[in-house]
C-alpha cells in the first residue's frame, strides 16, 4: 500500500467509526428496551426523529445552545417514550409479541406522518453555527470535533448504561424483570415502573442520538427514523440483542464495513454489504457477537 492508499484507508476508517457510532447511539436504546421486555420497538427510530426535530426547533427558533437543546429534547422524548409504552404496548404485554410489533409499527407510521404534517416533506437543517465544527488532523487523516463528540458520547453512554444495569439496584430490578416478569412482580418489584423507566432511558438516548446525528449530517427529515431504526436494529442484533456492549460493537462493525465497502469501490452495494455481514455473522454465531446463548428448554 502506498502513502496515498494508507491515507485513504485511515480516513475511511475514521469515517466508518464515526458512522458506526451513530448507529451504536441508536442501537443502545433499542437493545435496552429489547433486553427488558423482548419487544422490537420499531417506534424507536421515530423517537430518534422526534428528538432531532425537537432539538432543531429549539436551536433554530429559540436560539438555544445545542447542548441545552439536547437535554430538553431528551426530556421531551422521555415523556414521549413513556407515553407510547403506556398507550400502545402496556396492554399488549401478555399478548403475542407480534401484536405488540404491529402496534409499534402503527405508532411509527403515526409519528412519521405527524412529523411530516408539522415540519413538511423536505429535509431541514441545523443552522451552520449550531455546533462549532473544526477539523482535527490525525496524521494524514481528518476528523471533525463533532465526530469525536459522537464517538465519545456513545462510548460514555455505553459505560453509563452498563453501569446502571449491572451495578445499581434499579438495574438489578431491570434484570429481574427481564429474567422473569411474574416472579419479579412477586418479589415486590414495581415492574410497570421499571418498564417505564427503561423506555424513558431508551428514548432519551434516541433523542440525544437524533440531535447529534441531525447536526452531523446536517439534515433532519420526517422519514429519517425508518432507515436509522433498521440499521440500529441490525447493529443491535449483530452485537447480540439485549447486550449493551454488543450494541456498541455491532454499530461500529456495521459502520466500518459499510464505509469500507464504499472505499473498495462498491458504493452501489453499500446497504447490501452491511446486511450481508449481518447474515454471515448470525450464521456463524446465531445469537450475535456478544449475545447470550439461548438455552433451549425441554
Amino acid at each position: 500500500m502506498n502513502a496515498q492508499g494508507t491515507h485513504m484507508f485511515f480516513q475511511q476508517l475514521i469515517n466508518g467509526i464515526a458512522l458506526g457510532s451513530t448507529y451504536a447511539l441508536i442501537a443502545l436504546g433499542y437493545t435496552m428496551v429489547y433486553g427488558i421486555i423482548t419487544l422490537i420497538n420499531f417506534a424507536h427510530g421515530e423517537i430518534f426523529m422526534a428528538g432531532a426535530f425537537v432539538g432543531l426547533l429549539l436551536v433554530a427558533t429559540f436560539k438555544m445552545n445545542i447542548f441545552a437543546a439536547m437535554v430538553v429534547s431528551m426530556l421531551v422524548c422521555m415523556v414521549l417514550g413513556v407515553l407510547i409504552e403506556l398507550i400502545a404496548y402496556r396492554r399488549l404485554r401478555k399478548s403475542s409479541r407480534l401484536s405488540a410489533l404491529i402496534s409499534a409499527i402503527g405508532v411509527s407510521i403515526f409519528l412519521a406522518t405527524l412529523a411530516q404534517m408539522i415540519f413538511g416533506a423536505n429535509a431541514r437543517s441545523f443552522p451552520d453555527d449550531a455546533f462549532p465544527v473544526r477539523q482535527i488532523h490525525i496524521g494524514d487523516a481528518d476528523i471533525s470535533t463533532l465526530q469525536l463528540l459522537i464517538i465519545g458520547v456513545s462510548a460514555l453512554l455505553m459505560v453509563a448504561l452498563e453501569y446502571i444495569v449491572q451495578r445499581t439496584k434499579l438495574g438489578k430490578a431491570m434484570r429481574a424483570t427481564s429474567e422473569d416478569y411474574n416472579t419479579a412482580a412477586l418479589m415486590g418489584i414495581n415492574v410497570n415502573m421499571i418498564i417505564s423507566f427503561t423506555f424513558a432511558i431508551g428514548s432519551a438516548l434516541a433523542a440525544a442520538g437524533g440531535v447529534l446525528v441531525g447536526v452531523l449530517f446536517n439534515a433532519v427529515s420526517f422519514n429519517m427514523g425508518l432507515m436509522a431504526g433498521l440499521k440500529a436494529f441490525a447493529a443491535a442484533v449483530l452485537g447480540g440483542i439485549g447486550s449493551i456492549p454488543g450494541a456498541m460493537l455491532g454499530g461500529l462493525l456495521l459502520g466500518v464495513t459499510e464505509v469500507m465497502g464504499v472505499a473498495a469501490g462498491y458504493s452501489s452495494y453499500r446497504d447490501a454489504i452491511a446486511f450481508f455481514i449481518l447474515v454471515l455473522v448470525l450464521l456463524i454465531r446465531p445469537t450475535g457477537l456478544l449475545g447470550r446463548k439461548i438455552q433451549k428448554k425441554v
Binding site: 422490537i40 433498521l230 441490525a234 452495494y269 446486511f275 447474515v279 448470525l282 446465531p286
Partner: peptide, 16 residues
C-alpha cells in the same frame, strides 16, 4: 428475532 432480522437483511440485499 435473529431470523426476523436475517429475512429483513436478505430483503434489503435482494433490493440492492
Amino acid at each position: 428475532d435473529y431470523l426476523a432480522i436475517c429475512t429483513l437483511g436478505f430483503a434489503e440485499i435482494v433490493k440492492v
